[in-house]
């Protein structure tokens, strides 16, 4: 099938977490039909895989650097993708997982491309969150589920609900206010522990989770008491899942109002 002529466009697609397992037919089609592909993925082997799909895959990895503010890195990601869009190319930004979940550059690039009048869209991918639900066996509908970026969670007083799941992402960088590090350590997680101890007992069991990036891997599902969090061996790929610690509180007033409605309205 012939590909239409380029006029400048942007598609940011997710290729999921596990090589070979999660890519959608549509994401693959965007990659194959692009003039240039930019790759923001989690493993060098995944970049090799992308290079089998397209002859011009440009890694976004060199834009990261120790000591460099990540916001600057993300602005540069937007800039390199937009430069090719403005040059009339069909650009595909390929991101691990879902390109719109805990990902600044894809959202910003699409917003900017549209402001400049270029067609731009995002195609979802299977995210680490999706893998978490499947691998750990969590249904967010049963008790509710709250998600926070770990450092932001520490920076602000949030009204969390300990009767629902609490998921903290980027736990390996928890507490890094500089955004210039690739990891933080136990001293930072001691602070996080104090924050969590406002709502959870120290012996509450928590789960460190990491989805499989390569198909020869198994997910990391490591259970430990909350008190061990500072000593845990954590990477940028790890997530902290905290199960509910309390029963849900019954709202008698609302239940009474609903029961009154049931009584007053005809049965369907």
């Amino acid at each position: 099938m012939s590909t239409p002529p380029s006029t400048g466009s942007l598609a940011c697609v997710g290729i999921g977490i596990t090589l070979g397992s999660h890519i959608s037919p549509l994401a693959r089609s965007y990659i194959e039909q692009a003039d240039v592909v930019f790759a923001g993925v989690a493993d060098g082997v995944v970049e090799l895989w992308l290079q089998r799909m397209h002859p011009d895959v440009r890694s976004l990895q060199p834009l990261y650097a120790h000591g460099k503010e990540r916001g600057q890195t993300y602005r540069e990601m937007v800039d390199v993708m937009l430069a090719e869009v403005r040059a009339g190319k069909r650009v595909c930004g390929v991101f691990y997982g879902h390109p719109g979940v805990f990902a600044q550059a894809p959202h910003k690039a699409i917003e900017q491309a549209r402001l400049e009048g270029f067609p731009a869209r995002m195609e979802p991918g299977i995210s680490s969150e999706d893998c978490l639900y499947a691998d750990v066996g969590i249904d967010p509908g049963t008790r509710g589920c709250q998600h926070y970026e770990a450092t932001q969670f520490m920076m602000y007083r949030r009204n969390i609900d300990p009767s629902a799941w609490l998921i903290l992402w980027q736990i390996g960088l928890a507490g890094d206010l500089t955004t210039r590090r690739f990891a933080t350590g136990s001293a930072y997680r001691e602070v996080l522990l104090d924050v969590l101890a406002r709502d959870y007992p120290l012996d509450h069991e928590v789960i460190v989770y990491r989805a499989a990036a390569l198909p020869i891997e198994s997910p990391r599902i490591e259970r430990m008491p909350l008190s061990q969090l500072p000593q845990a061996d954590l990477t940028m790929s790890d997530t902290l899942a905290i199960p509910p610690a309390r029963r849900m509180e019954i709202d008698q007033e609302v239940r009474a109002r609903l029961a009154q409605l049931d009584e007053s309205l005809p049965t369907v």
Binding site: G40, A42, D43, G44, L48, F102, A103, T179, A213, I216
Partner: peptide
């Protein structure tokens, strides 16, 4: 199922991939 050995043999490694700074 050794990712470490595979990376070594292919001269690849896990990439830094955090896509969000805390806002």
């Amino acid at each position: 199922r050794s990712t470490t050995t595979l990376h070594t043999l292919l001269r690849q490694e896990p990439l830094f991939h955090v896509q969000m700074a805390p806002l």
